[in-house]
Design a binder for these strands. Structure first.
Lengths: 161, 161
DNA sequence: CCAAAGATTTAGTCTTGGCTAAAAATAGTA
DNA sequence: TACTATTTTTAGCCAAGACTAAATCTTTGG
């Protein structure tokens, strides 16, 4: 991770309309891709945790079968993920019992939820219709850095909200 | 995939500030998650294809080693992905030669690139700084539906651009 | 023209996040 | 209580996308 700049070739035509990488060092670009890959790794975890929090708040408990139904995956898949989330200390669960969030899990859920709402609000504020705002926010929320979220909030503050 | 609506429970407190799912049927939510999962599957493919296009445009050819460097992954990883992209008829490649895009690949790259630019422009328009706009766009671009992109363009049209 | 450097390929491993099918436990009801 | 339905768990499968190490091919400088 230290071969900055100077790559043998002569960087021809700056290509102003096209290539994204035309204005970026390989290193900087690589780090962006790494960041995106990292975000992708957390996506699924955050989705599960946020949904578990929703279920607890709505129905008083989070059952595996409900998580599966809402996520659109099989029960077996949820079960395996529950083990992982336990290992990550985001939830606790005993055999054949429903799922609870740890402090860390609850915090992650709150965070996710807040991001989700900001993203939906921003999408709506720039003219995206409801259905698409909700659907796309599900993916977008995981890729917004704190700085980007902060900018969204400032924007919403200024522009009506 | 047909157990719409009516889920045994009584849906208590609407919970207006919190749970995302509070205003959405399990089905609708599941389909949002499915959409996000699908987008996630295409992300990597699009990243590779877009980057290959960039390299071809900038340097006249896309070498495996350059793709690896810019993406921040190993050469072996790129090599395996090249096989997959070939099978998907997005690129062509002969052993030990550099990589070319098919028509479909070129089209996908153009598409990706356009989305990328729109997303960056929108982020900047709502006040995100350059570095974060570029970094976050790398992840966000893959989760914007055509409708959302169209809304972004309308917004940029109206607000300076 | 040939040896070293550089690029590509192959082989084998790992984790994640899905799936199905079937077994075991719990819950609900006649 | 016993039977049935539901839920949870287990086992085993698969593909994607990353890795390292080592083999093979190409390019290049002396």
């Amino acid at each position: 991770m230290s071969d900055s700049g100077a790559d043998g070739r002569d960087t021809p035509a700056p290509a102003e309309g096209g290539a994204v990488s035309a204005r970026m060092s390989p290193d900087r670009q690589a780090s962006h891709f790494r960041r995106a890959r990292q975000a992708r790794e957390m996506e699924v975890v955050e989705d599960y945790v946020e949904l578990i929090a929703d279920l607890i708040d709505e129905q008083g408990e989070a059952r595996l079968v409900d998580v599966a139904r809402r996520l659109g995956v099989s029960g077996a898949t949820v079960n395996k993920m529950v083990s992982r989330l336990s290992e990550m200390s985001l939830i606790t669960s005993e055999p054949y019992r429903s799922i609870f969030l740890t402090e860390a899990g609850r915090a992650m859920a709150e965070d996710s939820r807040a991001r989700h709402h900001i993203v939906v609000a921003l999408l709506r504020a720039v003219g995206v219709d409801d259905e698409n705002a909700w659907a796309d926010a599900e993916g977008i929320e995981h890729h917004c850095s704190p700085e980007t979220l902060a900018a969204f909030e400032r924007f919403l503050e200024k522009h009506g909200k």
